[in-house]
Amino acid sequence: MVVIVLTACPPGLRGHLTRWLLEISAGVFVGKVTGRVRDELWAAVLEHCKSGKAFLVEPAQNEQGYAFRTHRHEWEPVDLDGLSLILRPNTAPAGSGMKRGWSKAAQYRRARK
């Protein structure tokens, strides 16, 4: 099973992907293809997705059973002791009032221990 998510990509790329995958929502493609076809589709995505973003979820022989590939995406996959996790950058503006660190609830829980 392969899942490709496109954001702000040209319509021609979406049309190309519908030859192999089913578009279940705008920019979300799902299907079961061979590894060779999957790699060729990802190469086409990288070639045609100029300023847009792309995300691929593919099966893998690991504990989770899947792996990620990204293109021009702020969220990036990182490996943590064999598990693939998504690292989301802190995008809070400097004067937004959002503070970094533990929440009040987490501080209370830690204090009770």
Rank of each mutant, 00 (worst) to 15 (best):
V3W: 03
V3N: 03
I4Q: 11
V5M: 06
P10K: 13
P10T: 03
P11M: 03
P11N: 09
P11Y: 01
P11K: 09
P11R: 12
R14D: 01
H16N: 08
H16Y: 13
T18Y: 01
T18P: 00
R19M: 01
R19N: 05
W20T: 08
S25I: 01
V28Q: 02
F29K: 10
V37Y: 06
R38D: 07
D39I: 00
L41V: 07
W42L: 07
E47G: 07
H48Y: 07
C49K: 10
C49N: 02
C49T: 05
G52Y: 09
G52L: 12
A54G: 14
L56S: 10
E58F: 11
E58W: 06
A60N: 07
E63M: 06
Q64G: 02
G65D: 05
Y66E: 02
A67F: 03
F68E: 06
R69P: 01
T70H: 10
H71P: 00
H71S: 15
E76S: 14
P77K: 12
V78F: 10
D79T: 08
D79C: 05
S84A: 13
S84M: 01
L87S: 14
L87A: 14
R88K: 12
P89D: 06
N90L: 07
N90G: 03
T91H: 06
T91K: 15
A94T: 08
G97I: 10
G97V: 04
K99A: 11
R100L: 08
R100A: 04
S103C: 05
S103V: 02
K104S: 04
A106L: 09
A111Y: 14
R112E: 15
K113V: 07
K113N: 12
